[in-house]
């Protein structure tokens, strides 16, 4: 799975938690999940658990804490599936 494919899946996983749908139209790797997409911080855990299920990986708490942008999430997944 290449970076583009992973990012596309990451965006689909994040989508149900997004409150600012306008920001989805211009989403990039630099888009902040909390500040721009307005995802509730408590729901970040759901997103990380969804990554685990979708990509069959295990994410440590410390690694999950570093996820701030779509790019961070994509990198995290890529590092785990490599």
């Amino acid at each position: 799975m290449n970076e583009e494919q992973v990012m596309s899946k990451v965006v689909e996983i994040v989508r149900p938690f997004v409150k600012n749908m306008d920001a989805m139209a211009t989403i990039t790797a630099k888009t902040s999940i909390l500040d721009e997409l307005k995802v509730n911080s408590a729901r970040l855990v759901d997103i990380v658990l969804a990554f685990e299920d979708e990509f069959d990986i295990e994410v440590e708490d410390e690694a999950a804490d570093r996820v701030a942008t779509i790019g961070d999430a994509t990198e995290l997944v890529l590092a785990k599936i490599d």
Partner: peptide, 10 residues
């Protein structure tokens, strides 16, 4: 701090 750094919350 709600919505703050998760490390600080932990």
């Amino acid at each position: 701090r709600r919505g703050g750094e998760r490390r600080a919350q932990r």
